[in-house]
């Protein structure tokens, strides 16, 4: 039982983070809090992918041998999986871009209504 938990707690922690983010996104009435929730949500996905990359006993995905040793045999289990890291570099950029656009829209909303509380905005729309 303990082994089972130790083998997976990494994935569960990301799920908990994700729930926090999602809850903030759908429940909070302040628009900035929604955006923060969105960020937590996306960060949790990044953590999930990075946990997939890890290998016990593996090190950073940078070759120890320099050039000139092209034919040197390499053991794949000596390095952690580089693919999720690459994917997450892209996903981080996407996350930042989404954040930027969301904040730009928030600026527009603030200029129009003078508030970022959802209830107030809905009241002023009537």
């Amino acid at each position: 039982m303990i082994d089972f938990i130790i083998e997976r707690y990494n994935f569960w922690i990301y799920v908990i983070l994700m729930m926090i983010g999602l809850y903030a996104m759908i429940t909070k009435r302040n628009l900035v809090k929604k955006v923060i929730g969105m960020n937590i949500f996306q960060t949790s996905i990044i953590l999930f992918f990075i946990s997939l990359a890890s290998k016990r006993g593996g090190t950073l995905p940078i070759m120890k041998q320099a050039h000139g040793l092209e034919n040197f045999p390499v053991d794949p289990s000596a390095y952690i999986n580089p693919v999720p890291h690459v994917l997450m570099l892209t996903a981080i950029v996407v996350m930042v871009a989404t954040l930027g656009v969301a904040l730009a829209i928030l600026i527009l909303i603030y200029r129009k209504y003078g508030t970022l509380e959802e209830d107030e905005i809905l009241k002023r729309m009537q």
Partner: peptide
């Protein structure tokens, strides 16, 4: 398992990136 060196993610596509990168 977390950190399993024999997981499919570490066995199927990624070894080529590690072995052939240089």
């Amino acid at each position: 398992r977390w950190g399993d060196p024999d997981s499919p993610a570490s066995k199927h596509v990624s070894p080529r990136y590690i072995q052939k990168t240089v």
